[in-house]
Design a protein around this nucleic acid. Structure first.
Length: 840
RNA sequence: GCCGAAGUGGCGGAAUUGGCAGACGCACUUGACUCAAAAUCAAGCGUGGUUUACCCCACGUGCCGGUUCGACCCCGGCCUUCGGCACCA
């Protein structure tokens, strides 16, 4: 019984609420699809391959609306492409390592593996409830040994290629998570996950040399025309390439000098001081034994504290402070003595940690010079201006034409950059150089729930990578969790103590685990060959699917996952393991789900639970609302009433199709003897096919696609109120309706498809094709303007000659009254569309 | 501070190449059905003016200016909101 009749209290015999039984229908088809393995896909088929992928979730416990939105969008693409004739790979998995599992273990005593497993089971069930068309036989979970074995293998690949190294470095430490964080994971000075203030710590850590790939990661952004521009720009900024020169200022009486990096070698003659970062190794050396040593030492300490306390955003606002070291270096281009200072505004982590001070042309140097009364010297005059160092109130970055610059006087600054770089190189004072803002990727974590780093330490052999055939290094299961314990693995002797793979002697295992972003940097390759136990994937499988045709996920990964994945892909490419240089051809970054003006979050108390929506309206309604409410890349305003509207629409579709079942299932399907109303409906139907196809395919504008389907439904209903109905036309209209709606609302359309007599799944049908003949207009409405303002409309037969249209338009009463007493100067005719009469 | 995106009815949004501003939905109003309500169906729904009424007119896409026969759209200058980066030499 598919129509549910609810009797309400105090009702009469006719009173009833009638709506379609989504619960029964959705459960039924989800079961059928699973039993028939409808969503299984082979790597090879006679259809062209298409890979659509949504970012796999962290199994936090339950799906939230952001997930629902992400997967609804992906499922429309997958189902649409399938109907379009592609062999579609649409997989799902779990980014299953990470801190929350460990926190739950500490809090509730559940093992991270158990907690994760339960969450996955629940979320997988929700995925199925949503009706997504995933091939679950390809599911991956990064925390399972048959996956993390290959994550470890990836680490060894990096290691072998010289891309994984260990060094002591100042790193970001989250005191609450008790672990280090990569630069990308520090958000406004806080931990990306818990928000705690991040502090700097000197620690021995492992890094991936992503900086080796900085240039390629930057260059190849130009290949990503299918990505949103803003993501490309964010990555570009994050990589932050600066082209300039390194210049060495010599120290009198010493072999060594101070090297600075500059993008403005054209201002070298404007240097009046040298500034070192507090952490610069030369600072303390240069004052050693001098009367300033104590003061400098104190200042350096102060900077260090400032650095640790400050959130990066605040650093820019900090008052510039410095101290004269009382030592000089020599500016190579003019031999001048330059005083050396130490200051808090120079960063050790960028360039060489030393900066030449050119107050006339750099605002920071200017502020510093004014504060400490250091001289200002103009190195270039902007066009049409004469700078007086004594009168300047701010730096003037545009140098214009060089002055006070010896042999380079009179040169335009861009040209001077080149000439001076030549000059530096010719004299051995420096060289052209490129610097990046991008830092190496810090990949070690002092946590338990992550992929072990497959490295052993042997007293006689040193650092020894675990041989591939011994992978995976298994995570020990019996582990105790206590709050505040750093490196839980280090507490387990059975794990730590091992034998050296080289000499067989006693060795210690690495107890840090890997950043989970490593796991997610290659998962999209594993889907192509998920059961492979000889390799992470075969090249053949990868080549048949990669690059991913359409990737869909949140913008928050613009410089995290998306940059790391690009890096991994390039390394895999260099190793000959994949043939694609970029992983994702097209990227769709979906907007947030907003309610009451803010992102849905527990702390704001504005969360709508998908389960409740499923229970009340079903998955089809949830999907339809989410896709209809806004274009996918924009933020979406949640509206309970909007959901109600989507629900009403689906019920209207249900009644429309069920009420005309007999018409539709009848065989009559010829279009002879059509009347005007019949032709009009057919025109609407075919126009809708065109609109919906283009909206999905070219623009991902699901909202307007659904609006078009709604318009078509309205028009079908109006048509059915006519006395004369053409069976073939109705049949075509209703079948088209179901086909067009199928990717959005897969369950109800499947049910109705069978209800009208079909015996094969709607999701295996071909996408309808519009017929240009049906689209042809018989009459055209011409918009008639006078002086650019709409005055009237004119209905003419299609193909009427322009002169005829013009003649008729000029005779219109409304036009006449507007041009009365004026002279018609010009008539603009946009054939078939618009006529503008210009009168003065 | 720099970079990016966005400002359209009561609300979400549409207008795809410079050519009818407000599609579609929500909310609201009215009517039909009903003893009544819900559901459903139908009609209306930017602001102001005018009219018995049909109609008609003016204004209207953050603000100011420009280009054009014609501008939500292009150009110049602002304002506001959101996002990213932040002393990057």
């Amino acid at each position: 019984m598919l129509i549910e009749q609810c009797r309400l209290e105090g009702e009469g015999p006719l009173a009833r609420e009638e709506h379609y039984n989504f619960k029964e229908i959705e459960t039924k088809w989800q079961q059928v699809w699973e039993e028939r393995r409808s969503h299984r896909v082979e790597n090879k088929s006679d259809r062209p391959n298409y890979y659509v992928l949504e970012m796999f979730p962290y199994p936090s416990g339950a799906l939230h609306m952001g997930h629902i939105r992400n997967y609804s969008i992906g499922d429309v693409v997958a189902r649409f492409k399938t109907m379009r004739g592609f062999n579609v790979l649409h997989p799902m998995g779990w980014d299953a390592f990470g801190m929350p599992a460990e926190n739950a273990a500490i809090k509730h005593g559940t093992h991270p593996a158990e907690w994760t497993k339960q969450n996955i089971a629940k979320m997988r069930a929700q995925q199925k409830q949503l009706g997504t068309s995933y091939d679950w036989e390809r599911e991956v979970a990064t925390c399972l040994p048959d996956y993390y074995r290959w994550t470890e293998w990836m680490f060894l690949l990096m290691y072998k290629r010289g891309l994984a190294y260990k060094r002591k470095a100042p790193v970001n430490w989250c005191p609450s998570c008790q672990t280090v964080l990569a630069n990308e994971l520090v958000v406004e000075g806080g931990c990306w996950r818990c928000g705690s203030g991040v502090v700097k710590k000197e620690l021995e850590q492992r890094f991936f040399k992503i900086t080796d790939y900085a240039d390629r990661l930057l260059e190849d952004l130009s290949l990503l025309g299918g990505w949103p521009e803003r993501v490309r720009i964010m990555q570009e900024h994050w990589i932050g390439k600066s082209v300039g020169a390194e210049v060495t200022f010599s120290l009198p009486g010493q072999e060594r000098g101070i090297t600075v990096f500059t993008t403005r070698q054209d201002t070298l003659y404007g240097v009046t001081f040298m500034v070192l970062a507090a952490e610069h190794p030369l600072v303390l050396e240069l004052v050693k034994g001098s009367d300033r040593e104590a003061a400098v030492r104190e200042f350096v300490e102060k900077c260090r504290r400032q650095h640790e306390m400050a959130r990066p955003g605040e650093e820019a606002d900090q008052e510039k402070e410095g101290l004269d070291l009382g030592v000089h270096c020599i500016n190579p281009v003019n031999g001048e003595k330059v005083p050396i200072w130490v200051a808090n505004y120079v960063l050790m982590g960028y360039g060489t940690g030393a900066v030449k001070g050119v107050p006339a042309h750099d605002q920071r140097d200017f502020e510093f010079a004014r504060k400490y009364d250091l001289p200002v010297r103009v190195g270039g005059q902007p066009v049409g201006e004469v700078l007086d160092p004594d009168l300047m109130t701010e730096a003037v970055p545009a140098a214009g034409v060089l002055v006070n610059s010896g042999p380079f006087n009179g040169l335009e600054s861009e040209l001077a950059k080149d000439k001076i770089a030549d000059y530096l190189e010719a004299n051995g004072w420096g060289k052209r150089a490129v610097t990046y803002r991008l830092r190496d990727w810090l990949v070690s974590r002092q946590r338990y729930w992550g992929a072990p780093i497959p490295i052993d330490y042997c007293d006689s052999c040193g650092t020894v990578p675990v041989p591939e055939e011994d992978l995976p290094v298994m995570l020990p299961e019996n582990i105790k969790f206590d709050p505040g314990v750093v490196s839980p693995l280090a507490q387990i002797p059975e794990f730590v103590n091992t034998t050296c793979p080289q000499c067989g002697g006693p060795a210690r295992r690495e107890t840090d685990t890997m950043d989970t972003f490593i796991c997610s940097s290659w998962y999209y390759y594993r889907y192509t060959d998920p059961k492979n136990d000889q390799a992470p994937f075969s090249k053949e499988a990868v080549d048949s699917w990669l690059p991913v045709d359409q990737y869909i996920g949140g913008i928050e990964h613009a410089v995290l996952h998306l940059l790391y994945s690009r890096f991994f892909t390039k390394v895999l490419y260099d190793a000959g393991l994949v043939s694609n240089v970029e992983p994702f051809t097209n990227l769709l970054t979906q907007g947030m789900v907003i309610k009451d003006g803010a992102k849905m979050s527990k702390s704001k108390g504005n969360v709508v639970n998908p389960e409740e929506i499923f229970a009340k309206y079903g998955a089809d309604t949830a999907r339809l609302f989410i896709l209809f409410a806004a274009p996918p890349d924009k933020d979406l305003d949640w509206s309970d009433q909007g959901v109600e509207g989507a629900w009403r629409f689906l019920n209207r579709v249900w009644r429309l199709v069920m009420g005309n079942k007999t018409v539709v299932s009848s065989p009559a399907n010829e279009y002879s003897l059509l009347e005007r109303a019949d032709r009009d409906l057919r025109r609407k139907v075919h126009a809708t096919i065109k609109k919906v196809s283009e909206d999905i395919e070219e623009r991902f504008n699901f909202n307007t696609a659904i609006a078009a389907i709604m318009e078509m439904v309205n028009e079908i209903q109006r048509y059915l109120e006519n006395d004369r109905q053409h069976r073939g036309v109705v049949r075509e209209a209703l079948e088209t309706l179901l086909l067009l709606l199928a990717p959005f609302a897969p369950h109800i359309t499947e049910e109705l498809w069978y209800q009208i007599g079909h015996t094969d799944s709607i999701h295996r049908q071909s996408w309808p094709q519009w017929d240009d003949k049906a689209l042809a207009q018989e009459e055209i409405t011409i918009v008639v303007q006078v002086n650019g303002r709409l005055r009237d409309r004119l209905v003419v037969a299609a193909g009427s000659p322009p002169e005829e249209v013009e003649r008729l338009a000029l005779k219109l009463e409304k036009v006449q009254s507007q041009i009365e007493g004026k002279k018609v100067v010009k008539v603009i005719n946009v054939p078939g569309k618009l006529l503008n009469i210009v009168a003065k």
